[in-house]
């Protein structure tokens, strides 16, 4: 182990906590962006509490009621929103003016609309990418950063998941993923999927979207394809998820260069940070979290020894609850 790093915490499985009770939003609405998109947002918890913005994954995922439950609702003012083209935001599945940087400005737009001066950010998977992109762009607006399933959107990560790597652990699911793509196009799966997911024929989009979404759904949990969340089988969710995700990946996250995000970390080292990572995360392997921790030694880092990528795995829930409880005191 690199001696410059503090050892990651590796917790046992006894006495793990479960999610906070279900809560309903005290307000919700839609915010115009000045372009074709409008964003659906919710506010939950304590209106006078510490502000927190929750960034969902994908890109192309959506918020859901479980995401409200990682926070002590008596202490946090929890803001959740569906990113462009996602969930209840409109128009659904649209790729127009939909980039990392338009999403970063949406977060600012929402902050200003809600009259919040500074807030903490909470994001898993793509949500961690977006949380970091937002923080390095507007560090003066961020009070804390809680991340899970770190994804730096590098070519190495994309190659691992969509070309050669995860396929060795999940050959059964990989078989289903490669089925819609002819052998002659399989040397570049993201490009092959991108052509189909942006095809004008919705039937072609839907077939590709189903396979794309199910691949991620099959690999998200340490319990494997048997634990695929039902939403990954829903056609509307799958089309938005696959189209937007593939659009971002085909465009390399709209970053200036590969590994750009990691190079920006010195700008946010003064912000309190928590990193939670499943040891057996196949979607966004531990290497990225490790690299992030190396660049951000002040952050707290916890490896959950018996978890994959999903935010709902018991060890991940427990670690995230401890992180949000700690963050609200900062």
């Amino acid at each position: 182990m690199d001696r410059t790093l503090s050892s990651p915490t590796v917790m046992g499985s006894a006495d793990r906590r479960s999610l906070y009770p279900e809560i309903e939003p005290y307000s919700f609405g839609w915010l115009a962006t000045g372009g074709p998109h409008e964003l659906y947002y919710e506010e939950c918890g304590n209106p006078d509490g510490a502000p927190m913005v929750v960034l969902h994954g994908g890109p192309g995922g959506a918020i859901n009621p479980t995401m409200r439950r990682f926070f002590d609702a008596s202490k946090w003012r929890i803001v959740l929103f569906d990113q462009r083209g996602c969930g209840k935001s409109r128009p659904n599945a649209s790729l127009e003016d939909n980039t990392t940087w338009s999403l970063v400005e949406d977060i600012e737009r929402l902050r200003k609309h809600l009259g919040i001066t500074k807030w903490a950010t909470f994001g898993g998977s793509w949500g961690s990418t977006l949380a970091l992109a937002y923080a390095v762009t507007h560090p003066e607006r961020v009070t804390g950063i809680i991340l899970r399933g770190i994804f730096l959107l590098t070519q190495r990560e994309l190659k691992w998941f969509y070309q050669d790597g995860a396929s060795m652990l999940f050959p059964d699911a990989w078989e289903r993923f490669k089925r819609p793509i002819p052998k002659t196009e399989r040397a570049d799966m993201i490009s092959a999927y991108h052509r189909r997911l942006t095809h004008p024929d919705r039937k072609i989009q839907a077939e590709a979207a189903a396979a794309w979404s199910q691949w991620e759904g099959d690999t998200i949990s340490i319990r494997g394809p048997e634990a695929r969340p039902p939403k990954f089988n829903e056609v509307d969710f799958a089309i938005a998820f696959a189209r937007i995700e593939c659009h971002f990946f085909a465009n390399r996250g709209f970053f200036d260069e590969d590994g750009w995000l990691l190079k920006q970390i010195p700008k946010i080292r003064h912000i309190p940070g928590w990193i939670v990572q499943g040891r057996f995360d196949v979607v966004t392997p531990l290497e990225s979290a490790w690299t992030l921790k190396s660049a951000w030694p002040e952050s707290k880092f916890e490896i959950v020894w018996d978890a994959g990528h999903a935010s709902t795995e018991p060890g991940i829930i427990d670690a995230l609850l401890r992180a949000t409880d700690e963050a609200v005191k900062v």
Partner: peptide, 21 residues
């Protein structure tokens, strides 16, 4: 801009709030 900037529902008051930014 002749469009609605934001539409929200405040559960505490039951009102629909149209925002002008």
């Amino acid at each position: 801009d002749q469009k609605v900037d934001a539409v929200g529902i405040d559960h505490a008051t039951g009102s629909v709030v149209l925002t002008i930014l």
